[in-house]
Structures are given as structure tokens and as C-alpha cells.
């Protein structure tokens, strides 16, 4: 389960942000996950409390936003939504496509509190 390793990396970044902001608490963490990142949202939610324990984010809520899979066709240039194991062009059916979105794994924003200056 690599989600624990990824949650630990996430917590590392969140702790850095809290530190930069002189914040002692993190209340919300917003992450964008594409299905093709190889990371499963339920497994992230399960791993999160383990990674967050004992850090400024121990009481934080993790908000995961799933991004759509979108491909661009090399043949007809159309952009279309696709499924994980069917990344073919929705317009002409050609398989020579490139991914426009769907593999992201991004820490978007963090809500911090109890700032001490």
C-alpha cells in the first residue's frame, strides 16, 4: 500500500506550510487526485490518520477531489473524456492519444489556524 508513503510525503509538505505560516494547527487539506495517478482515494483516507498522528495536521480533514480523465487525439485533435483502461479518442476512436488530465496528484491548498507571530 503505497498510499501510506504518499500520505507521509503529503504530511511533510503540510508541516512545512504550517511552519512557514507560524501556524500550530492545520484544519483542512485539499488534494487533487487523478485516477491514473495510481493512488486510490479510500486508501488515502485510511492512511491519512496514521501519517498525520502527532503532527500539526493530526486533527485536519483531508478533502480529495477526483479529476476527470481527458485525452487529446493525435489523429483528429479532439479532446474527450475517457476511462482508465480505455484511453481512446471519443470522437474518432483512434488510440493514439495523449493525456490532458487524469494523472495529477497535487496538494492544492491548506487551511491553517492558531497563528502565533
Amino acid at each position: 500500500m503505497h498510499e501510506l508513503a504518499i500520505c507521509q510525503a503529503l504530511i511533510g509538505q503540510v508541516v512545512d506550510v504550517a511552519h512557514e505560516q507560524h501556524a500550530s494547527k492545520v484544519s483542512d487539506i485539499f488534494v487533487r487526485i487523478g485516477p491514473l495517478s495510481g493512488v486510490e482515494s479510500p486508501l488515502m483516507q485510511n492512511a491519512f490518520p496514521i501519517a498525520a498522528a502527532g503532527t500539526v495536521a493530526s486533527d485536519a480533514s483531508l478533502h480529495l477531489e477526483s479529476t476527470p480523465i481527458v485525452v487529446r487525439c493525435a489523429e483528429c485533435s479532439a479532446e474527450s473524456e475517457a476511462r482508465m483502461n480505455r484511453l481512446v479518442c471519443g470522437a474518432c476512436g483512434d488510440w493514439r492519444t495523449t493525456l490532458v488530465s487524469g494523472d495529477e496528484l497535487i496538494l492544492q491548498r491548506v487551511v491553517v489556524g492558531e497563528v502565533h507571530v
Binding site: Q13, V17, L107, R109, V110, V111, V112, G113
Partner: peptide, 21 residues
């Protein structure tokens, strides 16, 4: 999901990060 409706309390604020995990 994106958090645009989370109203920050007086002593909290939101920090944009946009960094790959």
C-alpha cells in the same frame, strides 16, 4: 471538494500550495 465553501474562522487562513505530492 475544492473547499471554496469552507468559511475560514477568524484565526484561520487558507494557503495556496499547488505542489505535486
Amino acid at each position: 471538494t475544492c473547499g471554496c465553501n469552507v468559511t475560514p474562522a477568524a484565526d484561520t487562513h487558507s494557503v495556496e500550495v499547488l505542489k505535486g505530492l
